[in-house]
Amino acid sequence: MKESKKVKWIHEKVVPWGLPIVLLVAWQGAVEAGWLSSRVLPAPTDVVAAAWDLLEKGELWQHLSISFGRALIGFAIGGSLGFVLGLLNGVFRPAERLLDTSIQMIRNIPHLAMIPLVILWFGIGEEAKVFLVAIGVLFPIYVNTLHGIRNVDAGLLEMGRVYGLRPWQLFWRIWLPGALSSILVGLRYALGIMWLTLIVAETIAADRGIGYLAMNAREFMQTDVVVFSILLYALFGKLADSIARFLEKRWLRWNVNYQNR
């Protein structure tokens, strides 16, 4: 029994890491053997060393917190706007008639295409990045909230009315939980867009942040710092995804599709 449990643990927890480790070792070996120029791709150990260096100088923390702040503020603004608009248009038909077409039209503009305009408006200051993130995040949250609210079971709403729920109780007990799985899909998608937008915006126009760190390092041919910056973005992307997963697991416990995941 115990033996098979151990085997199972190895299968589930260890095996998935096998390939990445092999690749990492191969990468290190290739650089050391001189097959791979460290200009093209520095060895993993060099990347770690660069990271340590940045950390020691205190630079890393500065860039990190700047990028993080932009992401959070942009997400908070765009996300809450999209959420409120989605709720409003989902619950009240007249609001939808008034607003939805306009919102859908704006949605068709790729928000990254607005970068030149945004730079003209805000320069390369904080507002530009926050604005782009907010715009990028707004639509997936809006669309999925609206979709979720629209698909709330009308029978449940009717039942709620018969059972004496007041409008705000209907909202908290039926509208919102009914739309939640769709809203969380939007959240997950929006978190992805949030990082993507930030990467592009910081790379093109910034004087601080992870993107700036990477671009600056490129000018000085510090490939190891560039690679490290890319890894940082990947890490944050993963982190955001884990948060979304955690919320799904917690808030959608009742849904068989999300149990034991």
């Binding site: 449940l156 039942m159 059972y163 004496g164 109780q169 939980p177 959608l252 009742w254 849904n255």
Partner: peptide, 28 residues
């Protein structure tokens, strides 16, 4: 307006899937 003296049982039970049995019973 709504008949507050009445309760309805529907063909589909119309329980709220996101509330446990007891919280469904105590709804409202």
């Amino acid at each position: 307006g709504l008949n507050t003296a009445a309760r309805v049982m529907f063909q589909d039970a119309r329980l709220l899937p996101w509330r446990r049995v007891i919280d469904n019973v105590g709804l409202g």
